[in-house]
């Protein structure tokens, strides 16, 4: 586990972009944090890192899932409006998680018990009006390796603070 402090939304996107460039088919990234904490900006970054060429990458809050084609498929899920875990079936949740694409889940706390054991968790919290702390926590071998690579790449950039 380690943390990154970003000083603005551009840096939050940049961290997402670096992570996105490392994602492989089947990877799952779960985002936790309040409204306006930077989850969607981070997801935009991931989409860019996955080379999604769509002109518009928009919030999936209402639709629950937005699908994109990048170097691998990108499934952007948002569980903000989930009222009951039984609704996950309507979204096709299991199919996305078991798919050959990279999946990002915003508001993952809404379905914590339904998530697979192996995943990368990212916790967003406020430092100041624009600055955010991103706490990374890997579950499973694949994600421990991914996290080590991420830490090294971000560290090499020497722009964004790592705690």
């Amino acid at each position: 586990m380690f943390s990154i402090i970003t000083s603005n939304t551009e840096q939050t996107e940049e961290v997402g972009r670096v992570l996105g460039s490392m994602l492989e088919p089947g990877d799952l990234v779960c985002l936790f944090g309040d409204l306006g904490a930077g989850k969607t900006h981070f997801s935009f970054g991931i989409a860019q890192g996955l080379q999604v060429r769509d002109q518009y990458i928009t919030s999936p809050t209402f639709t629950f899932v937005n699908e994109y084609r990048g170097r691998i498929p990108f499934y952007h899920i948002d569980l903000y409006r989930l009222k009951d875990p039984s609704e996950l079936e309507s979204i096709g949740f299991e199919e996305y998680i078991d798919s050959d694409g990279a999946t990002v889940i915003e508001w993952a706390e809404q379905a914590e018990d339904e998530l697979p054991a192996d995943k990368l968790n990212v916790y967003f919290s406020d430092v100041s009006e624009n600055s955010r702390e991103l706490g990374f926590f890997a579950e499973g071998e694949r994600y421990e390796k991914l996290l080590a690579d991420l830490k090294k790449t971000i560290g090499d950039k020497k722009v964004i603070e790592i705690k």
């Binding site: 409204l35 518009y56 928009t58 809050t61």
Partner: peptide
């Protein structure tokens, strides 16, 4: 053109929540 992030109705819902 269209929204580059949140939809207008979504902004209403989220501000209500805040």
């Amino acid at each position: 053109g269209q929204t580059r992030d949140d939809a207008a109705g979504e902004a209403f819902d989220k501000v209500a929540k805040l």
